[in-house]
Simulated assay, not measured.
Amino acid sequence: MSANNSTPYGVKSLLECISRATLLAEPDDIPQFLSTHVDEMTRVRDTELRDTKEVAFRYQEQWGKSEGYFI
Rank of each mutant, 00 (worst) to 15 (best):
V44I: 14
E61S: 04
E16D: 13
F70C: 14
H37C: 08
E48L: 14
I71W: 11
D51W: 04
R58V: 05
T22E: 06
D51S: 11
Y9Q: 14
E16Y: 02
E48C: 06
L49G: 01
M1G: 12
G64C: 15
T7R: 13
I30L: 10
S2W: 02
Q32E: 15
D46Y: 03
Q60D: 12
N4E: 14
V38T: 04
Y59S: 09
E40L: 01
A25K: 05
G64H: 03
Q32H: 10
L34P: 03
F70I: 08
G64Q: 09
E67C: 07
S13L: 06
G68D: 09
I18Q: 14
T36C: 02
R43P: 00
Q60F: 05
P31T: 03
F57T: 11
Y69M: 02
S2F: 09
R43D: 07
M41A: 12
L15H: 11
D39M: 05
I71N: 09
E54V: 15
C17Y: 02
Q62P: 01
E54Y: 00
I18M: 12
A21V: 02
R43N: 04
E40A: 02
D29K: 01
I71G: 04
L49A: 08
V11W: 14
E40F: 00
K12W: 04
P8S: 10
Y69G: 07
R20V: 07
K53C: 14
V11H: 10
E16I: 05
R50G: 14
T22N: 06
N5R: 08
L34E: 13
S35A: 07
E40I: 00
N4C: 15
M1A: 13
A3Y: 05
D46T: 06
V11S: 01
T52Y: 08
G68W: 03
D51E: 15
Y69C: 05
E40T: 00
D51T: 09
E16H: 08
A25T: 09
R50H: 14
